[in-house]
Amino acid sequence: MDVFFMLLINGLAEGALIFLMASGLSIILGLMGVVNFTHGTLFIWGGYIYIATYNRTQSFLLSVLAAMAAVFLLGAVFEKLFVSRVYGNIPAQILITLGLQVIFTDLVRLIWGATPITVARPDFLAGRWVIGGATIVHYRVFLIFVGLLVAIGIHLLITKTRIGMVIRAGVQRPDMVQALGINIKLYFTFVFAGGAALAALGGALYAPLTGSMSSTAGLHNQVLAFIVVVIGGMGSFLGSAFGSIFLGLMGAVVAWFVPSLSVVANVTLMALILAFKPNGLFGLAVKK
């Protein structure tokens, strides 16, 4: 029972981190039809900016906000200067976003060095509880809480606001949204930048979890996010949330019992779902 409880917390915390990456990626794919390989790079930029700010200010909140704001701007620049030129051209999207990933990952190495940099958890999140035989790390519970808050926030944004209404409509008929007098390109920039900010939030929260950030961390998390998007279905917020929790829990269980099969389990799950539900579990029918 102790192990079950511990795996549940670890799995949900891992799922929360993956969700932060995958939700943005899923909406970018669903709304804009853009296969975005810069997401992992934006994740590490969030982590590095968080660490740089935290080491100067010792303020957790300020550092997280600085990471999100900076990467939001970076995402907006990516979209305006590069991605907007290749809408509808998937091979070009893959090439251009892979190119940006290489350049901006190397820029991280140039600025902060190739070796991982370390950061301590903020004092108020550094403790742990021991319940029976299980050790529950405060920070992991905090991650679950943040993941939940972000999920509720995005859900409210998508279902209760005009921005969300345009996003939902745009996933189905971007041409018709424009024909109603709405500048969908502006929303594309906002969504791309918002997705980037979520990736940065993931990176900023990941760094204190592992105690360090390296330039290679983005790739691993990006792969997980893509798996979640495939499992959940592109453009589906609910799919991203469900897929992230499922992948997080499965990852925690497999890593505990058969660590060597972690990656195999994720990919096998994705292949099975693709075989039986090609649009993912909650995928929308997208008309371009």
């Binding site: 939902r168 189905q172 018709m176 424009q178 024909a179 709405i182």
Partner: peptide, 24 residues
């Protein structure tokens, strides 16, 4: 001109396939 500015000039458009947003 971009489509959205044309619409804003005061043109309503009902396409052949209705253009209704199914999920709304």
């Amino acid at each position: 001109r971009p489509t959205y500015t044309i619409a804003k000039e005061g043109i309503g458009y009902c396409p052949e396939d209705y253009g209704v947003f199914d999920e709304l």
